[in-house]
């Protein structure tokens, strides 16, 4: 694997590249440009950057109005303060009006580390997934993030993009396709399908390697789009592998696991488990320590895989 890189850096770099080719792109932030990395854009295109100060709700509704005036707007802050604090502004100003706003939120999940539970959004995917008209992207790595930003810019309508603070492994490359709503099978397999998003995708690959050593063939699916979910990929996984595990850096309630469960409950008969955060808040600590404490490592994916395989009829 290539060197580690955070998806927030990739997000900021992609915005700066986008700014060079599309002068209708505007970027907004709420005093976190140096953390969400929109500063890369702000430095190059100060004229197309708005800092709203520490005022997330105001930023979201104003972004909707900018978008409804013909611009493609990227609005960024931390996931708790975007998806969370400004939820109703996103709902009524951005989604209800179908505004062309892309909400890029960073510092999601325990990988945000020492800032602690007040800052580690474990519920943002669920909040955003529940909104009509919203598209939800959780790219697996920095390479995929760049493609996601360009795809979101091309797409008409609200998009939520989840980015992360921690430098993580790169598990896709230039040749990996990116199409909104179309999952990437990073590795084929027949005994179990591991469907993952975000920084759990590299963990899923490590888990697949460990399973292979035990003679188990695991399919690894990078589900970068949580909504609209690639239903066909989920059904094919259930049919062809006969057992499914999801993995996400998010609560097991309302996130990727729930989205996949909704598909499986619709007549698919495959044993299924969710790896994710067990309905609790995060806390301060080094990210690696938190991954272990919250069950977000390859180990949990391997164990869940073995259990679902054992449950096959």
């Amino acid at each position: 694997m290539a060197e580690k890189k955070s998806t927030r850096i990739a997000y900021g770099e992609a915005l700066a590249k986008l700014g060079a080719v599309d002068d209708k792109v505007l970027v907004c932030d709420a005093d976190l440009a140096h953390a969400t990395m929109t500063a890369f854009f702000a430095d190059q295109y100060p004229d197309r950057f708005y800092n709203f100060g520490i005022a997330e709700g105001n930023m979201m509704t104003s972004s909707a109005a900018l978008a409804q005036s013909g611009y493609t707007v990227f609005a960024s802050t931390f996931a708790v303060f975007g998806a969370g604090r400004a939820f109703e502004q996103i709902r009524n100003a951005i989604c209800y009006s179908k505004a062309n706003v892309k909400i890029g939120c960073s510092h999601a999940g325990p990988s945000c580390g020492e800032d602690g539970g007040s800052h580690q959004a474990v519920e943002d995917i669920g909040l955003m997934r529940g909104l009509p008209n919203m598209t939800v992207l959780v790219p697996a790595d920095a390479a995929e993030m760049e493609k996601a930003v360009f795809a979101a810019a091309k797409f008409q309508g609200p998009v939520y993009i989840r980015t992360g603070r921690l430098p993580t492994d790169i598990c896709t490359d230039e040749s990996t396709p990116f199409e909104i709503g179309k999952a990437n099978v990073l590795r084929d397999g027949k005994d179990v399908a591991i469907i993952a998003c975000g920084i759990m995708v590299p963990q899923a690959i490590i888990a697949a390697d460990k399973l292979a050593e035990k003679g188990i063939s695991a399919r690894v699916i990078d589900m970068h789009t949580i909504k609209p979910l690639d239903v066909e990929a989920v059904k094919a996984a259930a049919k062809e592998c006969g057992a499914v595990v999801t993995a996400e850096e998010h609560s097991i309630i309302n996130g990727l696991g729930s989205a996949v469960a909704e598909v499986l409950a619709d007549g698919m008969n495959a044993p299924f488990e969710r790896v994710g955060i067990m309905d609790r808040f995060g806390q301060s600590g080094k990210p690696q320590k938190l991954f272990e404490a919250y069950g977000l490592t390859d180990k949990e994916i391997v164990e869940a895989s073995e259990r679902v395989i054992a449950r096959k009829a």
Partner: peptide, 13 residues
């Protein structure tokens, strides 16, 4: 402060 398990969270709890 800010270590795993401490009651001194990064932001007060």
């Amino acid at each position: 402060l800010r270590q795993y398990g401490s009651f001194l969270q990064g932001h007060p709890d």
